[in-house]
Design a protein around this nucleic acid. Sequence first.
DNA 1: TCCAGCATCAGACTTTCGTCTGATTCGCAG
DNA 2: CTGCGAATCAGACGAAAGTCTGATGCTGGA
Lengths: 209, 209
Amino acid sequence: MEETKKVKVLVVDDHPLMRVGIAAIINATPDMTAVAQTGSGEEAVKLFDQYRPDITLMDLRLPGMSGVNAIRTIRSRHAQARFVVLTTYEGDEDIHQALAAGAQGYMIKGMPHEALIDALRRVHAGGRFLPQPIKLALASRTPDADLSSRERQVLALLVGGKSNNEIAAELGITEATVKCHVSVILRRLNVSDRTQAVVVALQRGLLHL
Amino acid sequence: MEETKKVKVLVVDDHPLMRVGIAAIINATPDMTAVAQTGSGEEAVKLFDQYRPDITLMDLRLPGMSGVNAIRTIRSRHAQARFVVLTTYEGDEDIHQALAAGAQGYMIKGMPHEALIDALRRVHAGGRFLPQPIKLALASRTPDADLSSRERQVLALLVGGKSNNEIAAELGITEATVKCHVSVILRRLNVSDRTQAVVVALQRGLLHL
DNA sequence: TCCAGCATCAGACTTTCGTCTGATTCGCAG
DNA sequence: CTGCGAATCAGACGAAAGTCTGATGCTGGA
């Protein structure tokens, strides 16, 4: 068995136990090896520079720098870098962001681990890998889902449970303007009041608690 | 090394990769062995009967029967059964429920895996194990947090984004009564409107999306 | 037995929410 | 250059939401 031919994988996940499991699966595959692992996005960037893995297996929910930002940062320096995102399914927004950032594969924690190896193989071969449910979630995305930055700002405050008045104070604008933004947000998210807006924002992963 | 002296652990988690990691850590510990594993609460009950493990490592978020219900079911038949809950921290309610159901230990995914072994040892020795942040979360719990079953029902509909009117229709009561329930819920959760109620309910794990 | 708590309802009142109409400014793409 | 969309504000309106007072029936524990 020639070591140099093994596919080098960098594992990024904030759960140590999960990293152990992933590494075990990868290292049990004869032509793959987990060369390094970490629980932080910042360290992932450093480790990538150091080990130049063929594929990076990346969780999105990380303390500090998010997985998406880590992908963006690494890709800005290494355009050929390939990523498989590994996460518990948390709404279509995460998926969309990750793919936009340059991920080639998406794997859901909780799928049988053969699927993980399959995904790694396909992505390493230059292809893509998206599970069926992920494809469906992306297909059902309406383009209206993209809010302006100001609207996302207001939505964040809505999720914080703020009233129109408080939001106005916090943003230094009038309540009338806030109402206007809220109305637009409701239309874009296709809901009829702020409570529903909060629920779908959390469901779709537009914001995190 | 005498096999019969090993501490037998049953692993219950719906993420296969996580199970692999947990089992690897346990089996790497000389005096412990992961005798069985599953991703479902129902199967956990069967496997317990079959293997009689010394400790069951239980995730709370499972498809089908919840981890808490699995603990309750197993305990009703085997009062001496010991449990360590292993979960991503999702609010004080889960913890409270799990301990009330009879768990002796609580471990957060994302802690170093030495801590897991430590927890298993202590619980197997007849003790308890609660990480510091968990203790704090439990300490800051107000007794007001317990809602009546009717109130929980209303809260669930609030989280569903329903209006008072829709809730009234769904429960077959008057809107006046719904308003009354909502008022009580707001006071109990210590918030001032339904949107905030939804947010804290999700934060504290009173309800799941 | 009696009180406390839960669930139910009603009316009235204030505040907030959400919509609508209409208007101004700014930057950017065609 | 022109127009479109974002962001800003205003006023006014109806519809919800939330509070308060007060009242009834039921259950279960002290």
